[in-house]
Design a protein around this nucleic acid. Sequence first.
DNA 1: GGGGGGTCATTCGTGTGCAAATGATCCGGT
DNA 2: ACCGGATCATTTGCACACGAATGACCCCCC
Lengths: 156, 156
Amino acid sequence: MSQADVPQPGVERRAQEPLGPYVVEDQVGFLLRRAHQRHAAIFLETMARHDLTPTQFTALIKTVELGRVTQNLLGRLVAMDPATIQGVVRRLVDRALIARALDPMDRRTTVLIPTDAGFALAAKAVVAARAITAATLAPLDPEERTQLTALLRKLG
Amino acid sequence: MSQADVPQPGVERRAQEPLGPYVVEDQVGFLLRRAHQRHAAIFLETMARHDLTPTQFTALIKTVELGRVTQNLLGRLVAMDPATIQGVVRRLVDRALIARALDPMDRRTTVLIPTDAGFALAAKAVVAARAITAATLAPLDPEERTQLTALLRKLG
DNA sequence: GGGGGGTCATTCGTGTGCAAATGATCCGGT
DNA sequence: ACCGGATCATTTGCACACGAATGACCCCCC
């Protein structure tokens, strides 16, 4: 590193950066990406024996919870756009965790219904999911966990 | 909704769900995914005229900041694994925002150096990036913004 | 009772994200 | 001088994620 690469901080630079230095690592976007990655890693490892990804788990749980949903509605409920939910549902259907049914009232839609295997796996997966949430929040003390959850919910 | 679908809370269920009900929408993982998606949407829209994705922006900024980095090291610094950083860097090189150089000391590595165009774009993109952070945090009041950032950083 | 605007599901293209495998290269220890 | 473990970059395969386009279908309003 030459001297030119390490200028004295806060002298001439201030004029060009009136709002202070921009540190990528401190931006919400970067921190959100990191946190999401870490959670995904914990999820994948903990849920490995059930072979469910975070999105597959979420879609399955929601389908079991509702008993019967339209694919697009399911997508809206779990924050996945139609193109994404399509692939997620396809994989769950391929594994016979949920089934497609026809809606005589609306021939555009396919109704999704969990299978017995889907119910059974969902029950077991929820146990793992509780551990995943706990492991993800492990670095925080109880009060901070509540705060973080509240702030993220407020973030929309 | 039938009566059977809305049981009185906290009676028989407690025996089977000793830790309380599992609401997927309240789990950190779900909230992190939602928040990350929302940020990505804001980023894409605000950064549209510069045509940079969040990861491309981060990699470019970091390269400009360092002036000269190895690809794998860059990846570690911005939390992208070698397979991911490879594609990100390739797109930046294709657009002539950064250049590859040979390292005579280590023939395995390719050294990355920002081009003049890369410097120029980075300077303009940082302005947009400040707005993106602000827009992402808009739903929170100033104190909450500091809290959220601190909690996410602590999350690792 | 037809027509037009909206919705549903799907497909395509592009961009992350990671595990795993590969080939080239480096380096420490013998 | 060499060899074996480690690192670098790349590729492949799979799974989100979304914009845009498409074809089928719904429903309301004229």
